[in-house]
Each structure stands twice: as structure tokens, then as C-alpha cells.
Design a protein around this nucleic acid. Structure first.
Length: 269
DNA sequence: TTCCAGGCGTATC
DNA sequence: GATACGCATGGA
């Protein structure tokens, strides 16, 4: 279990968490709304719950957070009930994954909101991370929060011009309409196995296999989903021409995050 | 100027 | 089912 201590004045919570690095987790391309405000500090939100969090080694300070909020929101969001050391030990049997885990062993898989995830990864297609962040920032500033599917379903392609999202605007509209009308919903997806849920998500225009897998992995914590983007396709050609190693079975998506971060930074290692 | 970015829809075979 | 091409935008 995690060692958690609320402040005496009740302003924040300190938690000792192993296998966790803020930069590696919040800036590795799984979430786009966290902003680094200081060397060891990030600010962001889950749904409408804001958070500022500071790291010193394996000690984390959750600013302006009650013990109740920590337990009800952030414990799950940061997947603190999962022992990532166990996971990394499993992956060590593969030499490439061993290197990837050694490079960024502080990555944790966030449990994000499904709708935000869907929207974000629709925007991500054929796009780069700084520009994805820019589009989502403009979206949130416009609404003063991440807009719901209901709110976005009232928009049109031209009313979204300010996003400068290009051809993706029509996909955002279609997703908002299918999501707010219940054609695609968390309730439906939760009942389905990963392959069926992927097909259901792909009913949305602009959602193909890769975006669907990102939504399953980051928005529903389906760790068997394995999004194949351009970077991961390079990893597969280079290191796994015959497929993923056995040690990734059931946690392919977590392995994917270590590999994605590793390959993107190879020239800097 | 050209190429590329956490892809996908469409046309064509 | 596989493959080729266009797509909005902006940084390198």
C-alpha cells in the first residue's frame, strides 16, 4: 500500500509512491492536458477536478487536495493500486523491453476519462504532440473546461474553426453526436470484450484501429490493447518481426508505453 | 520548398 | 484484403 499523509492544516496530501516519475508519465504522449509549471511540478485535471502535483524523489505532494479527493480521484487516476515493479520484472525477460523500462521506469498508465481520451486521440491523427496539445488547449480555454459530448454536439465544423484542427473537426462533431446520443457509450463498451469494443468505437468517423486502441488503453484501462502508431510500427519491424514476446501477454498496452517513449528518445540516449 | 506528425476515409484492384 | 492517395495545419 501507499504511504499517505495529509497536511496538519489540511491543504494537501503527501504520498510516497514507487515506480513513478511525473515527467515520464504526464509527458509521454498518453495525456495532453498536463502542463509543467516548474522543474518538478505539473498542473492538470481529471474531468473537472484540478490538480497541482510536485515530485521530490519518490515523495509526491498533491497541492490543495483532501485525503478524500486523493482516495476517490487521484489514487485511481494514477493507477496507484498497481505494482509497476512487478510489471517491469515480467517485461525484463525481453532485452528491448528491459532497456525501455530502464530508460523510463517511472511511466504509469493513467486511468483517464473515456470521452476526453476519445476526443484527444481523434485530434492526434496525422498530427504532432505539440500541435495536439495546442488544439486541446484552445478547446478547453473556449469552454473553460474540457467540453462534454453534449456541449460539442451543438457545434458545427465552422464553429470549431478557432481550434485550427483541420480535417479532424468533422470527426470531433461525429464523435460528440454518437457519444451524446448513446450510440457509443461507456456503458456499452464496458460490457464488450476488447475486440468488440474496438469495433464499436470504429463506428465513429475518424476512429480507426489505432485511435480505438488508444481509447481502450488510456480511457478504459484495457491493457491488452496495443496501439500501433508510426513509432510502434518501427519498433515492431526493428525488434519484433515475429510479434510481441510472451512476457507482454495481457499487458501489451503497458509494454507499448515503455517502448513508445524509448524509441522516440533513442537518438538522445 | 519539402517533409513529417501517436491515421483514417475513399477509391481501386 | 491490400495498396495508393488526399487531407488541414504548422514546425523543422
Amino acid at each position: 500500500m501507499i504511504d499517505v499523509k495529509p497536511d496538519h492544516d489540511g491543504n494537501g496530501v503527501t504520498a510516497v509512491i514507487n515506480d513513478f516519475d511525473l515527467g515520464e508519465t504526464l509527458d509521454c504522449g498518453q495525456a495532453f492536458r498536463w502542463i509543467r509549471t516548474d522543474e518538478n511540478t505539473y498542473t492538470g485535471a481529471f474531468l473537472d477536478a484540478p490538480l497541482t502535483i510536485t515530485q521530490n524523489g519518490n515523495s509526491f505532494y498533491f497541492h490543495n487536495t483532501s485525503l478524500e479527493e486523493f482516495e476517490n480521484i487521484w489514487y485511481d487516476y494514477f493507477d496507484l493500486g498497481t505494482d509497476y515493479n512487478d510489471i517491469k520484472q515480467r517485461l525484463l525477460s525481453d532485452p528491448t523491453l528491459a532497456k525501455a523500462c530502464a530508460f523510463a521506469g517511472g511511466i504509469r498508465l493513467l486511468k483517464q476519462d473515456l470521452w476526453e481520451c476519445l476526443c484527444s486521440f481523434i485530434i492526434s491523427q496525422n498530427n504532432n504532440i505539440p500541435r495536439i496539445k495546442g488544439i486541446i488547449k484552445r478547446l478547453c480555454e473556449h469552454y473553460e473546461h474540457f467540453p462534454s459530448a453534449e456541449e460539442l454536439s451543438l457545434e458545427t465544423v465552422s464553429s470549431l474553426d478557432y481550434l485550427r484542427a483541420g480535417f479532424r473537426a468533422k470527426y470531433i462533431i461525429d464523435a460528440s453526436q454518437k457519444f451524446s446520443s448513446g450510440i457509443v457509450s461507456l456503458d456499452i463498451l464496458e460490457e464488450l470484450d476488447t475486440d468488440s469494443a474496438r469495433k464499436q468505437l470504429m463506428l465513429i468517423k475518424g476512429v480507426g484501429p489505432k485511435v480505438a486502441d488508444c481509447v481502450l488503453l488510456f480511457g478504459m484501462h484495457r491493457t491488452d490493447a496495443f496501439p500501433k502508431d508510426v513509432w510502434i510500427k518501427r519498433v515492431m519491424e526493428e525488434y519484433y518481426p515475429d510479434g510481441l514476446p510472451e512476457c507482454t501477454k495481457g499487458i501489451e498496452g503497458i509494454a507499448q508505453q515503455y517502448l513508445f517513449h524509448y524509441i522516440r528518445n533513442l537518438e538522445n540516449i
